[in-house]
Amino acid sequence: MTPVSAVFKAMLAKDVRRELRSKEIFISGFLFSIILLCAIYIAVTAGNLKFEKMGTGAIWLCILFTGTVSMNRIHQSETANGCYRGLILAPVEGGWLYLSKVCANLLLLGFSATLLVPLTALFFQLDVWANLPYLLASLYLGILAFVAVGTMVVVITANTRMKDVLFPLVQLPLVVPVLIGGVNSTAVALEGKAPWDWLQMLLAMNVVFLSLGFLLYEFLLEE
């Protein structure tokens, strides 16, 4: 096995194993999503709006907020016990470490989202069977783009004194295009149509963000 794929696999396995053992980020994140769904329902009905129309928005708000909280937490656990120094010393280019981190975050957030969809369908009376493959494609492509940006930004803001506040402040404006693409793509898929335009846009964003991350992550791994 080449060192690149060995390091990539070891990193990914480490992240997955840690989460499987503790489950703390998944459980807290998922519970947070459920509370958010309730809050969104209360906020929407207070304004005399039909809550059935809010399903798509609710899914994406949950992904956005839960993703932001979880990714911050994941990175914090990375800095404990000198883990971060281990990353810097890994015998491969930073880009590969970045890709493995993106994969680990995608697995975690993607799994949460997969469980979130039936729950949102239940609470907000969505017809998820209308176009399930496109719905899942919209969600996963959106989450991948979100994670591609977030994996970089979380390391950037971790260098500051105000990391807990700065991460959402820097991350959320950067993912507005992802949010617009994801929400619209999901909404079209839930109507039973094929959201090709939006999926193409999400795909283009993924290509750009992943390439940027691959090239730039190296510069963040210095002490």
Binding site: V153, V170, F209, L216, L220
Partner: peptide, 9 residues
């Protein structure tokens, strides 16, 4: 260093 990376993104 960190600022430059954010500037590019």
């Amino acid at each position: 260093r960190v600022g430059s990376v954010l500037g590019i993104i």
